[in-house]
Design a protein around this nucleic acid. Structure first.
Length: 197
DNA sequence: CGACCGATTGACT
DNA sequence: GTCAATCGGTCGG
């Protein structure tokens, strides 16, 4: 498997373009003991100060700081008192744009992912491993320590994947948002079993 | 300072 | 289908 890291310029393009093109790419997490890889199958775009659903809608704060960084960093936030969610930051420094990773299809390191999830492997419901934004973070061991991580680094990054025919991609409104819920900024693989929902 | 609530999940009626 | 868990950010007084 060729883990060719995405370049900085990939992340500096328009956020909806980046979101769509993240589908099919590989999320890679390396530690001293294991290598975890998942194919991205579902994402959502959050467009900063012009998007009521975005954490950055009311400006730059300590919490959403990383959303304002230059594209190619990881924005990890803590929510509901127990979950982490991971976003890919896009655009130039000072412009708050990010793409939420909502689901991946596990490719490598599933044993570690189940261990990280803290549950027994369920043969009847294998998608439960990574079919949600907080589930994939737990499976990949992504938490507070990964907030602000550079995706051009070695610990966590995104690598080139398969070419995706546009006809395989579906769009919809975003899940779980109450404000700005009319925009169709969720992108996912049609018919892929690992998509959340 | 207190109240409210969230880009979710899992357990349960 | 409903609802609690659990806590830090945000907002009103």
């Amino acid at each position: 498997m060729n883990l060719s890291k995405l370049s900085r310029s990939f992340y500096l393009r328009p956020t909806l373009t980046v979101a769509r093109q993240l589908l099919g790419k590989y999320l890679v997490k390396k530690t001293s003991t294991h290598l975890l890889i998942g194919k991205i199958v579902e994402v959502e775009a959050y467009l900063g100060e012009r998007d009521p659903a975005s954490h950055a809608f009311r400006g730059r704060t300590k919490r959403n700081e990383v959303m304002f960084w230059r594209g190619g960093h990881l924005y990890v936030y803590f929510t509901y008192g127990m979950h982490y969610c991971a976003n890919v930051v896009t655009a130039e420094e000072g412009i708050a744009r990010a793409v939420l990773l909502r689901a991946v299809e596990p490719i490598k390191g599933m044993e570690w992912m189940w261990r990280n999830r803290g549950i027994e492997r369920d043969q009847k419901n294998q998608v439960n491993l990574t079919n949600g934004p907080a589930k994939l973070c737990q499976a990949f061991g992504i938490g507070r320590a990964e907030n602000g991580a550079d995706l051009l680094g070695e610990r966590v990054f995104i690598a080139e994947g398969e070419a995706i025919p546009p006809s395989h991609i579906a769009t919809s409104t975003r899940i779980g948002v109450t404000h700005g819920s009319e925009s169709k900024w969720r992108f996912y693989f049609k018919g892929n079993g690992w998509v959340s929902g």
